[in-house]
Write a protein that binds this DNA or RNA. Structure first.
Length: 425
RNA sequence: GGGAGCGUAGCUCAGUUGGCAGAGCACCGCGCUGUGGCCGCGGUGGUCGCGGGUUCAAGUCCCGUCGCUCCUCCCA
């Protein structure tokens, strides 16, 4: 019986992995340029980390989290995002004791139970940064600049991208704004879906991005968070936008931008692609000044973002991304003729590889002609080893581009293969 | 959560009013007995996504189911 993969969890095949490796490399290099260091946190956490950190009322926690009991009855979850984990690690290991800004980045698989489609899988991969320990508005702008810098490195056209920003205020702004929303939505209660009528009492902010048509219509006339900022938050947001201006980063103010995770405060942003269709958010993030304290640390401001690898791969491979170098062929393909040569092959291959020559041979019992065909497709040189050569202690080298051949001593070739190969062309 | 389209060879896809399961590419063999790419000829390869139903007969029609894709939505 054939066992199939799990819905929404894709294999990334050898055809795609070169692109992924390149993206991961550019991401690491760019993050390093901005002073971030990698942190690796577990894929499994206690479920309460996310229900408390991300928010009980969020769609992610409410409907999309993979939750399961372990053998001792502890309630665990596959991480739906990484910020909560990074902050947990930050608090748990006392990284704040250094009294410094912690700049951390991560790369890894996340899990959300969603309806799969292009750019949205149940197991997906995120790259992200977290700058924990400073509330400087310049840092908000730097994080957005980092996002742009990454896209530039990947040769993505600037016109194909746009940055949306908003401010949803601080912890102190939330209750009044929440009340403003509550009174507004209460006046329209009859037009809301049952789910939102319930949210009215728990988290009216969530009504702003409800999917029901009726709720959306009501939400369009709802109070805007930018109009309910305290003086400090107002000044912070103005400073962030000022820095963006000076950095030459075009952005649009989007008052309806409310991120789906509850920990966000003040600045929120999304970098979107015009080439992605429905799933247009390439990366999203913002400030989360209350999360460290919420998870048991000292009051500590922080800002960060997360981006989706799958979406980046789509955009880079279909639009304006730097062309991928063709898959590197191996240096040498050993063509054995006869059983004796096949017995000798492993020793020679092992010697070549230890000297840095990538080498392979035929394990399919192919004829000489077929093996040469494989060599021609996959390697730069062929090494032909048959009874004649073995009897004389020799091996025949062939440059597959020029066709020129040269017979050399087998033992000497194994000792310094590079020199002999260079001499064939 | 709601809506639409599509599942046939390893891959890309044909398959007529229901009537023997097809092509191209790939793979293998031969032409060429120890030399690749090109060419010619031949060959291997299929639970037609899965399960029911209608029928003398189902890849084709009906129902269900799983998967993929897209829209809506949510987000990365």
């Amino acid at each position: 019986m054939r066992v199939e993969g799990v819905r929404g969890m894709r294999d990334i095949l050898p055809e795609e992995t070169p692109l992924w490796q390149r993206l991961e490399g550019e991401i690491r290099r760019t993050f390093s340029l901005y002073g971030y260091r990698e942190i690796r946190v577990p894929i499994v956490e206690r479920a309460e980390l996310f229900s408390r950190g991300v928010g009980e009322e969020t769609e992610v926690v409410e409907k999309q989290m993979y939750v399961f009991p372990d053998r001792k009855g502890l309630t665990l979850a596959l991480r739906p995002e990484a910020t909560a984990s990074v902050v947990r690690a930050y608090v748990e290991h006392g990284l704040y004791a250094k009294g410094d800004l912690a700049k951390l980045y991560y790369l890894g698989a996340m899990f959300r139970y969603e309806k799969p489609q292009l750019g949205r899988q149940r197991q997906f991969h995120q790259y992200g940064v977290e700058a924990i320990g400073s509330g400087d508005p310049a840092l908000d702008a730097e994080v957005m600049d980092l996002a742009w810098a990454l896209m530039e490195r990947l040769n993505l056209r600037r016109e194909g991208l746009f940055l949306r920003v908003n401010s949803i205020g601080c912890r102190e702004d939330r209750p009044p704004y929440r009340e403003a929303l509550r009174s507004y939505f209460s006046a329209h209660e009859g037009e809301l879906c049952p789910e939102c009528r319930r949210r009215l009492g728990t988290n009216p902010l969530r009504i702003l991005d409800c999917k029901e048509e009726g709720c959306r219509a009501v939400a369009r006339g709802a109070p805007r968070s930018v109009d309910h900022l305290c003086p400090d938050c107002h000044a912070h947001f103005a400073a962030v936008r000022g820095h963006l201006q000076e950095l030459g980063l075009a952005h649009e103010l989007d008052p309806s931008l409310v991120r789906g995770l509850d920990y966000y405060t003040r600045t929120v942003f999304e970098l979107c692609s015009r080439d992605l269709g429905a799933q247009d958010a390439l990366l999203g993030g913002g400030r989360y000044d209350g999360l460290v304290e919420l998870l048991g640390g000292p009051p500590t401001p922080a800002v960060g973002f997360a981006g989706g690898m799958e979406r980046l791969a789509i955009v880079v491979s279909s639009h304006g991304g730097a062309p991928l170098a063709p898959e590197a062929p191996i240096d040498l393909f050993l063509v054995p003729i006869g059983d004796e040569a096949r017995r000798e092959a492993p020793k020679l291959l092992a010697a070549l590889r230890r000297r840095g020559i990538s080498a392979d041979t035929d394990y399919m019992g192919r004829s000489l002609r077929k093996a040469m065909g494989v060599a021609g497709r996959s390697a730069r040189w062929a090494a032909i080893l048959g009874g004649d050569e073995l009897a004389r202690g020799e091996i025949k080298l062939k440059d597959l581009a020029s066709g020129s051949e040269r017979t050399v001593s087998l033992s000497q070739f194994g000792t310094d293969p590079a020199a002999f190969l260079a001499g064939v062309a």
